[in-house]
Nucleic acid binder design. Structure first.
Length: 335
DNA sequence: GAGATTTGACCTCA
DNA sequence: TGAGGTCAAATCTC
């Protein structure tokens, strides 16, 4: 958990470092901005994965607050701000995904290990066995049934605003390859496979089924693990697009209108109704819609920071100021 | 044109 | 035999 918070702090610090670049973009090379953005994205993704893998089944609100108090010694004003925003709701959404394993093998493993694995670790285990099973099978096209042991089912809340048809992001990019009406189910089941299936022979797949009795909950069944990120050539974070021609006019527009579109979607609850109605709403990172892939890896974090209901600039200033003060204070203590 | 989704047809297995 | 999983052509978006 120490690493999680250091990653978060690192990400915020990096975001703060963007400020002078943004203000003097004309004198900076676009690559500076892009490399900074890349770095921020990587840090927040790492933090998210660490959080999910470490404290998946704990009470997130209690855990986060306790950790905040014990480990970061953040300015009380910041703690108050943190708790007053939707930060808790954001993490709650990520952490309370109800894990219901349909695999007896997995249950045994979890029981004996005394802890639950994160989806990545769990899928890693699945992937190993899956590859073996497929390698030992005949040359027939591998087909699986719903009651196959080697899968993992989770339930996640659907986005309450924006396009609720899209399941919440899970850190990977998926390509939909099928949809089918299921007998006795009100909603069709969607079939996804990893976007990098062809490029990296990634076997990962998932099925997304909306619950009959709770349309705002998705039941997602994962099969096999991602091997794409294990490839030396596979981008853990997708390469940035070519630098756009950013003009001073654009910068002025951005500064004058802080709530950029990808920050407008809300993770739910009031806060001024941030729904843009776009397909990316609630989808978070790795959202894929018709042709082009768009990633918003820091959107969740940025949303809760910027879209808190209070003055966004003041909020960010409070965070950065507090963080800097703390760091400087911490540095002074060490020195 | 590339790469995504849609959707009807096909295949496999219980 | 039928439900569930996948294929692949058509279509769509950027």
């Amino acid at each position: 958990m120490d690493e999680f918070f250091s990653l978060i702090l690192q990400g915020i610090k990096l975001a703060k470092d963007l400020e002078p670049i943004l203000q003097n973009l004309a004198t900076h090379h676009h690559r500076d901005m892009l490399s900074k953005l890349d770095e921020i994205i990587r840090v927040f993704i790492s933090a998210k994965e660490r959080l999910i893998n470490t404290h998946y089944h704990q009470d997130p609100s209690q855990m986060l607050f306790r950790e905040l108090q014990q480990q970061t010694q953040i300015d009380p004003r910041l703690q108050e701000y943190w708790l007053s925003t939707k930060m808790m709701e954001a993490f709650q959404s990520q952490l309370t995904a109800e894990r219901i394993s349909s695999s007896s093998g997995l249950e045994n493993k979890q029981a004996t290990s005394g802890m639950q694995m994160g989806s990545g670790d769990l899928a890693m285990e699945l992937g190993g066995r899956d590859v073996q099973a497929m390698a030992s099978s005949s040359t027939q096209r591998p087909r699986r049934r719903k009651d196959d042991a080697e899968n993992e089912t989770v339930r996640v809340p659907a986005p309450r605003m924006g396009n609720t048809e899209i399941p919440p992001e899970d850190g990977y990019t998926w390509r939909k390859y099928g949809q089918k009406e299921i007998l006795g189910a009100k909603f069709p089941r969607s079939y996804y496979r990893c976007t990098h299936q062809k490029l990296y022979q990634c076997p990962a797949k998932k099925q997304v089924q909306r619950l009959d009795d709770d349309p705002y909950t998705f039941e997602i069944t994962y099969r096999s693990d991602h091997t794409c990120h294990m490839s030396a050539t596979a981008p853990s974070v997708r390469p940035p697009p070519p630098p756009p021609e950013i003009t001073q006019e654009m910068i002025r527009t951005m500064v004058a209108q802080p709530p950029v579109p990808w920050l407008e979607f809300s993770l739910g609850g009031g806060g001024g109704g941030g729904s843009s109605g776009s397909s990316m709403a609630g989808a978070g990172p790795s959202t894929v819609r018709y042709g082009k892939e768009v990633e918003y890896p820091v959107a969740d974090m940025a949303d809760v920071m910027f879209n808190s209901g209070s003055s966004s600039s003041n909020s960010m200033e409070l965070i950065f100021t507090s963080m800097e003060d703390k760091w400087e204070a911490g540095g002074d203590k060490k020195n």
